[in-house]
Simulated assay, not measured.
Amino acid sequence: MKKLFNTNFNNNSVHFMLLLLRVAFAVFMITHGYGKLVMITSGGPIQFGDPIGIGTAVSLYLTVFAEFFCSILLLLGLATRFALIPLIITMIVAVFIVHAADDFGTKEMGLHYLIVYLFLLVAGPGRYSVDSLIGKSGRRR
Results as ranks from 00 to 15, higher is better:
F104E: 04
L62N: 12
A26W: 10
F65S: 01
L73P: 05
V98D: 02
A100Q: 04
L20H: 03
I72T: 10
Q47K: 11
Y113D: 00
D103Q: 12
F48P: 03
V64L: 04
G105M: 09
M39L: 15
P86S: 00
N10T: 11
K36L: 04
T31Q: 09
I52L: 10
L37V: 03
T106V: 08
D103N: 12
T106A: 10
I85F: 11
G110H: 07
L114D: 00
I46V: 14
I46W: 04
C70S: 09
G55Y: 13
L78Q: 07
I40W: 13
A100C: 08
G43P: 09
F82N: 10
L76S: 08
F16G: 08
L78D: 01
G35Q: 09
L76W: 10
F25D: 00
H15R: 05
S71N: 05
L19E: 02
P51L: 06
F68P: 01
N10S: 13
S13K: 14
I72R: 13
L21P: 01
I30M: 15
M29D: 04
F48R: 11
I54R: 06
L87N: 03
V64E: 04
V93I: 12
N12T: 14
K36C: 00
I89D: 01
I89M: 10
Y61D: 01
T106G: 06
S42F: 06
L74A: 00
D103Y: 11
V98F: 03
I92T: 13
L60R: 08
L76P: 04
N12H: 15
I88M: 05
A94I: 12
A94N: 05
G55R: 12
G43H: 09
Y61F: 14
F16V: 12
T90Q: 00
D103T: 11
A101K: 14
S59L: 12
K36E: 01
M109K: 07
I85T: 05
L18W: 11
F69C: 04
L111C: 06
V93A: 03
A101R: 12
F9N: 10
G49R: 12
A24V: 13
S13T: 15
H99K: 14
V23Q: 02
L78I: 07
F104D: 02
I72C: 06
I97D: 06
T41E: 11
H15M: 07
V23A: 00
G33W: 02
E108Y: 15
L37Q: 04
N11L: 11
E108K: 10
N10A: 09
V93Y: 02
S42E: 13
V93E: 00
S13D: 12
Y34G: 06
A79Y: 12
T63H: 08
F68V: 07
M17E: 09
M29L: 11
G44S: 09
F69T: 05
T56M: 14
V14N: 13
E108W: 04
G105H: 12
L87T: 02
I115R: 15
L62D: 01
G33A: 07
T106M: 10
L20M: 13
G110R: 08
G49P: 11
T63Y: 07
